[in-house]
Simulated assay, not measured.
Amino acid sequence: MRTHTTKSKAIPKAIATESQPADAISMLMEDHEHVKDLFEQFEGLGDRAMVSKKKLVDEICNELTKHTMIEEELFYPAVRSIGKEFEDTIDEAIVEHASAKQLIAQLLSMDAGDDLFDAKVTVLSEQIDHHVEEEEGELFPKVRKSSLDLVALGRQMEERKQQIPDPAG
């Protein structure tokens, strides 16, 4: 079992099984890790790997689009419902999502050889790193301590995620 450590304690990372579905936070953290891996793969590609770069960026954009949608449609409203203490954090996350969505739309309409393509991928990666740091370091630990049913929410999020078409086609 992998653990994610915060300043206060280690949080076991739940692994989804038929008897134990992943909870909402574990699901989001798995998404974070997957996208981080995709960004690292992108960084490892050479300047001439245009087809691979475009495929990887399309996958990154698909994953981020689905992730932001389930957060905005299900996770954030559920978190808002448990207390006003989360308002500012959720508002900031939504603004960060809007900024990421702009870059995602631009990247989906570009070719890997276009001017600023690599720069936009780098900026998107940096924005996502910052967003993930705040969620995993501040928001998720507080939500874990709440009364929110994270397993039921995780099920809803997984169902919704399966319904979202890939924006890149």
Rank of each mutant, 00 (worst) to 15 (best):
T3S: 10
H4Y: 13
T5C: 14
K9A: 13
A10Y: 02
P12L: 10
K13T: 06
T17F: 11
E18F: 14
E18C: 15
P21M: 12
A22P: 01
A24H: 05
L28V: 07
L28K: 05
L28D: 06
L28C: 08
M29N: 10
M29P: 03
M29D: 05
E30G: 02
E30M: 10
H32G: 03
E33W: 15
H34V: 06
D37V: 00
E40T: 07
Q41S: 08
G46L: 09
G46D: 09
A49P: 05
M50N: 11
M50W: 14
V51Q: 07
K54T: 06
E63N: 13
L64F: 04
L64N: 03
T68H: 12
I70T: 13
E71P: 07
E73D: 13
Y76C: 07
P77Y: 06
V79G: 08
S81P: 03
K84V: 11
F86V: 03
T89P: 00
I90Q: 06
A93Q: 02
H97V: 00
A98D: 07
S99G: 13
K101H: 05
L103T: 01
A105S: 14
A105L: 05
D111I: 00
G113I: 03
G113V: 05
L116W: 10
L116C: 11
A119S: 15
V121N: 02
S125F: 02
E126Y: 00
H130P: 01
H130C: 05
H131T: 04
V132P: 02
E136Q: 13
G137V: 00
E138L: 12
V143T: 10
R144K: 13
L148M: 08
L150V: 04
A152R: 14
L153P: 03
E159K: 13
R160A: 14
K161S: 14
K161F: 08
Q162Y: 06
P167W: 02
P167A: 09
